[in-house]
């Protein structure tokens, strides 16, 4: 692909992002953002999971393989997990997934982890905006 082509393409291009949201917090947070009419980019497609601890590395890697440009994973704040420690276990996992992905040359910005509670519609929207911006800057995923 030549340089100019990339340019024109990325002008119209918006990323496709898959978001794994915990049922007990972020999913409701997304809902709240919607009900409160807080704007956030329409690029995300939501998959509801019972807890951020449910998100296995496969979800993330399979998504990237299938051509999603980025992944967002959001759960309850540490200490607030409905299952008490699901998100703490997940946090350890996320750390290493991120490190290994980076080591393999997959930009760390493609996979974004965040905490957002059911009451934080505003925070949810802000973070999604931020994630979208990061992923947009990285451009379309090509590798897999």
């Amino acid at each position: 692909m030549t340089q100019t082509e990339t340019k024109t393409e990325s002008e119209e291009w918006t990323p496709k992002i898959i978001a794994f949201l915990c049922n007990w917090c972020s999913y409701a947070g997304a809902d709240l953002a919607g009900v409160s009419r807080i704007q956030y980019p329409p690029n995300i497609r939501i998959v509801r999971v019972p807890c951020s601890g449910r998100v296995s590395p496969f979800f993330i890697i399979k998504s990237l393989m299938d051509g999603w440009d980025g992944v967002v994973i959001s759960g309850c704040h540490p200490g607030d997990c409905h299952y008490i420690s699901g998100n703490l276990v997940a946090r350890r996992r996320f750390g290493i997934i991120r490190d290994v992905l980076e080591f393999f040359g997959i930009e760390p910005g493609r996979v974004n982890f965040m905490w957002a509670s059911a009451a934080e519609g505003e925070r949810f929207a802000v973070l999604i905006r931020k994630a979208t911006k990061i992923i947009k800057e990285l451009g379309p995923i090509k590798k897999f």
Partner: peptide
């Protein structure tokens, strides 16, 4: 081993935060 354990104080510098 780390993957069989967890702690409230684990590092989370990689989490997305508001600016």
């Amino acid at each position: 081993p780390p993957m069989m354990d967890f702690s409230m104080n684990d590092s989370q510098e990689f989490m997305l935060e508001e600016d």
